[in-house]
Design a protein around this nucleic acid. Structure first.
Lengths: 173, 173
DNA sequence: TATTGTTATACTCTATAACTATA
DNA sequence: TATAGTTATAGAGTATAACAATA
C-alpha cells in the first residue's frame, strides 16, 4: 500500500512523517509533493555547488536567458523567477562580475535594460545544463512511462488550480 | 494579461518557461513539479511570516515534534528535515528562546537531549497548523478527486524512485 | 574510534523599503 | 503618477569544519 503511515525501508521518516492518520488528504498530498521536490532540489543544489560552484537561482536565471535568445528585462526575470526586482539585481550583479551575463542599454526605454548571456556565459550554461540533464534523467529513469505521463498531466491541473487561487488573493506582488 | 510574449492566461511564464521543444520529458516533468511546489511554498512562507512571524523550517520542526509526543533528538530532527545538525541547533535555539520548545537531558545518553514542544509551544503550533490547513484546503479545493488520488499515488512512486537513486550515490550525508 | 550536539564562519537568498531616473 | 531598476539593510537558511563531551 502506497499510503501506509507506518515506516518501512521504503517509507523513511522525513517531512511527510508529520502527517497523522486524521490529517486531511490535502495536507498529505501537499507534504508528499513538497518532500519529492525538496529531495530532488537538495540533490541538485549540492551538485551545482560541488561540480560548478553555482546555485539554483543563478542556474535558473541563466536558463531563462538561454531560452529567450534576445534577452530579458529585469522585471521579466523577476516575474518568472517569482522573486523581487532587488534580488534579481543581486544575482545579475554576481553573474555579470563573472562575465556570464551582460546588461544591454535600451534606446527605447532608458530606465530598462536587457540582460543577455555572453558567449562565455552560453558555453558555461550549456556545460551545466548537460550535467543537469543527466542528473534528472538518472533520477527519473526508473519511473514508469505511464506514471510519468500521469504526473505531467495532473501536476498541470494542480498548477492551474493554485494559480487561480493566488490571483484572487495576492494579486501582483 | 499578466504576460506579453505569446502566453495565455492559463499558462503564465514562470520557472517552467525555460523548457524548449527539444528538452527531455524528464526535465519538463521536474520543472513542472518544482514550479508547483515553489509556488505553494512561497504562498505559505509569506502567510507564515505575516500572520505568525515564523518560517517554514520552524513550523516544520514544530510539526515533527507535535507528531511524536515524546519528543525527538536533534539527530532525528536533522534526518527528517534533511539539514545538518548545526542548522537544527540554530532553529532549536530560536524556538527555545521563545519558549516554544525545550531541551530535556537524557540520563541514558548524556551527549543527547530530547527536544519537546512546551505547553505554550503546543498551543502556538496548533493555532498555526489550523490556519495552515485552511490555506492548503483552499489551494487544493478545486482539484478534482480523481486527480488528487492520482497525484498522491504517483508522487509516492516518484518518491521511492528518487530515494533509491540517492541511497546509491550519496549514502548518509 | 564513532557519535551527539555545539560553535564559528562565510555565503546566499529573501523581504522590505527608500531611492533615482525615466516614462 | 507609475514604472524599471538600484541600493541598503536585516534576517534567515545552508554548508563546512573544528570542537567538546560522551559512548
Amino acid at each position: 500500500m502506497y499510503d501506509s503511515t507506518s515506516t518501512t525501508a521504503l517509507n523513511p521518516l522525513d517531512l511527510e512523517s508529520r502527517v497523522g492518520p486524521n490529517d486531511h488528504q490535502n495536507l498529505r498530498l501537499w507534504l508528499r509533493l513538497l518532500s519529492c521536490s525538496n529531495f530532488i532540489e537538495n540533490e541538485i543544489r549540492s551538485r551545482l555547488r560541488t561540480e560548478f560552484q553555482t546555485t539554483p537561482p543563478r542556474f535558473d536565471l541563466m536558463a531563462q536567458l538561454h531560452s529567450s535568445r534576445g534577452g530579458l528585462s529585469m522585471s521579466e526575470l523577476s516575474k518568472r523567477m517569482m522573486v523581487t526586482n532587488g534580488n534579481i539585481t543581486g544575482i545579475t550583479d554576481q553573474l555579470e562580475k563573472d562575465g556570464i551575463v551582460e546588461r544591454i542599454q535600451l534606446a527605447s526605454d532608458r530606465r530598462s535594460s536587457l540582460i543577455r548571456l555572453t558567449t562565455k556565459g552560453r558555453r558555461y550554461y550549456k556545460r551545466i545544463a548537460n550535467a543537469h540533464d543527466v542528473w534528472i534523467n538518472t533520477l527519473f529513469t526508473s519511473l514508469p512511462e505511464a506514471t510519468h505521463r500521469s504526473l505531467l498531466k495532473h501536476l498541470n491541473e494542480l498548477k492551474q488550480v493554485t494559480r487561480v487561487f493566488s490571483s484572487n488573493s495576492t494579486e501582483a506582488h
